[in-house]
Nucleic acid binder design. Structure first.
Lengths: 82, 82
DNA sequence: CGTGTAAGGAATTCTGACACG
DNA sequence: CGTGTAAGGAATTCTGACACG
């Protein structure tokens, strides 16, 4: 499920995060949505899962900087789950 | 892939159909998108595949009425492919 | 640092209708 | 019948900024 076709509002519903959080995680390079012509972010189901993991880590006290450094393992952890 | 999360503009890109065609096929009960709060249609990847099949059939001379009658087999054909 | 919010604009989607054939 | 299009409105998303801590 790598197709980036889900808009931010739907990702919000799917993850429970706010749009602000989602955009911030992108700004910190933890997630890389596709951009449609009009500039709208488009996410994949994999991105959705990844966002959930990111938020869990954040609640555990990790900072975006830490997560960026371990981005690879984050991805691994992600696909290793669901 | 049954989650209805793709908006019509993306479905347009994925299928090559126009929004008018997609809405018409819904009107004719060939496809059943979910509706978001604001009223926007949301489709699944399965719907996308189904729309492709529908359009192929239409080009082969079938009418929406015929396709509605064989909706079950249409779905079967659909999942039987990709 | 991570997130909330109000601000203004641009892009998206919706419906009902008229058109053609 | 199936599809194009212009029309007006409503919902969605975007960016940059100010706020708090």
């Amino acid at each position: 499920m790598n197709e980036k076709v889900i808009s931010i509002g739907t990702v919000r519903e799917l993850t429970g995060l706010t749009e602000r959080q989602i955009r911030y995680y992108e700004e910190k390079q933890l997630i890389f949505p596709y951009r449609s012509r009009g500039g709208a972010r488009k996410f994949s189901f994999e991105d959705v899962e990844r966002l959930k993991v990111i938020h869990t880590k954040m609640k555990d006290g990790f900072r975006t900087y830490d997560l960026r450094r371990s981005a690879a393992s984050l991805l691994k952890f992600d696909s290793g789950r669901s």
